[in-house]
Simulated assay, not measured.
Amino acid sequence: MKSLPALSAAEQALMDLIWQKQPVPVAALLELVNAERAEPISRNTLQTQLTRLEAKGWLRHEDGEKVRHYSAAVPEKRGRGKILSELKERLFGGSGLSLVRCLVEEGGLSDAEIKELNDLIKDHRKGGKA
């Protein structure tokens, strides 16, 4: 598979919604986007963002009789992995340990998440897959 271009924060937020709701028509996506915004964006602005995501290879569309539906062209696990890899490289010099240490030390993980992380580490040591 070809390498995916990086996403802006706005593009990543759109991908999050699309991964959750796909396939999603533009009108429904516009509602979802604007539900979380103090200042709503226009349909034209959203359409521009969708066109850019499609050109980057992150999205695809399917035209119905009257409605265009958007779906992710990249599976969520692969997309989030790409985003995390870039974040890890940019903020932590490529160190996964530094990333996890930051989450743990800054209170970014609940006790239940820390227990799950410990279980993942134990499984990994035993040769299991997470």
Rank of each mutant, 00 (worst) to 15 (best):
I83M: 09
P75S: 02
T45E: 05
L99A: 15
C102F: 15
L87Q: 08
R90Y: 04
G81S: 08
S8I: 07
L4F: 10
G93F: 05
A27W: 02
L14A: 08
Q49A: 06
E39S: 10
I83E: 01
S85L: 07
E65K: 14
V33Q: 13
Y70Q: 02
G81Y: 00
L109H: 06
G108R: 06
R90C: 02
C102D: 14
L46G: 03
D123A: 15
L117I: 04
M1K: 11
E106W: 14
N34S: 09
N34A: 11
N44T: 12
L53S: 13
L109V: 02
V104Y: 11
K82P: 02
L17D: 10
P23L: 05
N34W: 05
V100H: 04
L91M: 14
Q47V: 10
K88T: 04
G94H: 03
R125F: 15
L17F: 07
V104L: 14
Q12T: 01
E106T: 15
A38S: 08
E62K: 12
A112Q: 12
L32I: 01
D63Q: 15
A38Y: 01
V24C: 03
N118A: 10
S98T: 13
I83Y: 01
E65H: 10
S3G: 05
L7K: 01
K77L: 11
K2S: 13
T51I: 06
D123L: 15
A130E: 07
A28H: 10
L7M: 08
N118V: 10
D119P: 00
V100L: 15
D111R: 13
V33K: 12
K122P: 08
E113V: 05
H124P: 01
S3F: 04
L97P: 09
L109R: 05
D63C: 07
R101A: 15
G96D: 11
E113G: 03
K88N: 05
R101C: 13
L103P: 12
E116V: 08
A13K: 13
K21V: 00
P23I: 06
A112G: 07
E62I: 06
L32V: 09
L97E: 15
D123G: 14
A130R: 09
R37T: 02
E31I: 11
L53M: 05
L109I: 01
P23S: 02
L29W: 02
L46E: 00
P75K: 04
M15S: 05
R68C: 12
E106D: 13
E113I: 02
V100P: 03
I18N: 04
R78M: 00
K88L: 04
E86T: 00
G128M: 14
G127W: 08
A10T: 14
S110D: 10
E76S: 07
A55C: 00
E106S: 15
T45L: 06
E36Y: 10
S98M: 14
A13W: 07
K129P: 00
S3I: 05
V24E: 02
K77S: 04
G96F: 04
K66A: 13
K21L: 09
A6M: 02
